[in-house]
Design a protein around this nucleic acid. Sequence first.
DNA 1: TTGCAGGGGCATC
DNA 2: GATGCCCCTGCA
Length: 280
Amino acid sequence: MIFTSDSPLDLKLTVTSGQLFHWTQISQDTFSILNGRSVIEVNQMSKRKLAVSVTGEGLNRDQLERILGLSVDRIRAFARLEKDRFLRDLIPDYRGLTVMAQSPYECLISFMASAVSNIPRIMRNLADLRREAGTPIPATRVYAFPTPSQITRLGEEGLRNVGLGYRSKYIHLTCSLMQERKIDLDHWRSLDDDKLRHGLMEFPGVGRKIAECVMLFGFSRPGAFPVDVWVRRALEHLKPSLRTVSSEELSDWGRRRWEGAAGLAQQILFCSARKERISE
DNA sequence: TTGCAGGGGCATC
DNA sequence: GATGCCCCTGCA
């Protein structure tokens, strides 16, 4: 299936930007992305053109557009950010960035695994977790992300053996809770942002930062603004007076400033801070 | 070799 | 609201 975007799209930049953990690079311009029980192989054909094939569970065109982040008005979002004095100089390098969509549950557990870690380690831990506890997806060599009951069965010790460290307790507790109360995060899609954030933060091990990540990458809430050390550094670099502001207040600040483009702004700030390796 | 920071959250004060 | 701890890795 061929997808043509109305604005430039940089597949590699987007996939490697830290928003996704369940992927492998097949070749220079081709990535294999796990999403639920589907394995999506995406090839960048040209600046605005992607070739996509799906194995495992099938996905229709609309679903793929949503997953790949092509169904949002990126032209409008970038137009807004271009006018911002903090972001305008960064935009040219990141015009190809988009925010993809993941399963809310898988996104929640994945970002719980990311706390005080680093991307290579997170990806290794999660790949090991899938292999240890997940179900193989037929006709692929990929294991699906384990369900809450599969993780509960693996147990806290099993999670520790995967290398998840102190995060194991939280992930185990959260999965037990979801099982006990038969929680299906897909049913939370109708909640407004404040109720959704509040609900997510009820899970043990989920604070503001992870809740905002799940809102942005799992629930496609464009106004979510996760603040981690990199985003903080980027913001402090742009506006030194923000140095004394707490991370939660920065999250509110980003949302107020960029509204429906806050999530995209966060991705741009995150990527630029990491690229420049801003250290303080 | 050691020290430290890496996409946090929580209990305790 | 500040501080220490949680657990493990990669890197200087």
